[in-house]
Amino acid sequence: MGLRAYVARRILQLIVTFWAFFTLLFVLFRMMPGDPTSMFIMDGMTPEQREQRIAELGLDQPLYVQYVEYARQLLTGDFGQSFIYRDPVIDIIVVRFMNTIVLMGTALVIAYLIGITFGAIMGWWRDSRFERGGIVVTLIARSSPEFWVGIVLLSVFAFWLGWFPSSGMRTTGGELGGGFVARYGSADFLRHLFLPALTGAIVYLATPTLLMRSTMLDVLNADFIEIKKAEGLPERTVLYKHAARNSILPIVTVMAIATGAAMGGSVVIETVFNWPGMGREMVNAVNNNDYPLAMAAFFLMGSVVIIMNFIADLTYVYLDPRVEYE
């Protein structure tokens, strides 16, 4: 099978995956007990008002009608209106989604930069004290729960030393809104970003480090490294230019998948640091039975995972011609 056919088949799979994902989401949310009026009932919504609202939202329609309607809406790129806020879902989540991407993106970049370097050095200095110590540290980071790492960093840097704020995305009371640079480029923002991003970086650090180390070990056993060494190249050149570069391939795949996973993992970090991101909005929407908002949030996060996997597959084929199109 040629490359083109492979890509075509992979795209078809992608479409089927999206459809299955969307359907599953729809069914799951409708199976959840309660409805969007539940939260108002104890605040005095009368039974008549409740019924009227349910009808307004179309929730009294048979499930398949709601399903078809929602699918039609989604195909036109419309996420609908939030049941609770009564605003277009897209307006609510775009800002939140950006906040999450900036946070988790920073965390991942730090994690992979440090992870790849650290892993390469560990592989190079096999059996050294550095390697053994490094593995222990990495494994500790890997097994620490996100919220625990967050709380430890908070206690040290926010409460004890007082260097960083404990929550939020900026100092309150300032101008809201503004362009991308104004929002995400200010020193105040970076100060707020530091601890949550570091938390994410620590948690996501282990995968690239360990993976890099083990592929390094494979590559270092390869004949061409011996030849390069025999050619009399400096150690540094062999390490970075030949060994590390050839070990990086699997990292690319893992990175794509990790990006997807990190989006989902942001919920905990956002909760601990009160970060106004997608994860928190998602939790609220689920608690309030705000189906359109909750589904859009899950859909977006899931899409990142699906698309990143897709990209990983394609990159792999591109980077390594030995990979079979099967």
């Binding site: 609510i92 800002v95 939140r96 900026r170 009371g173 809104g177 106004p276 991101g277």
Partner: peptide, 10 residues
């Protein structure tokens, strides 16, 4: 004055 959801209402 201003409001950004999940962040602050002024």
């Amino acid at each position: 004055r201003d409001w950004e959801r999940q962040a602050e209402l002024q």
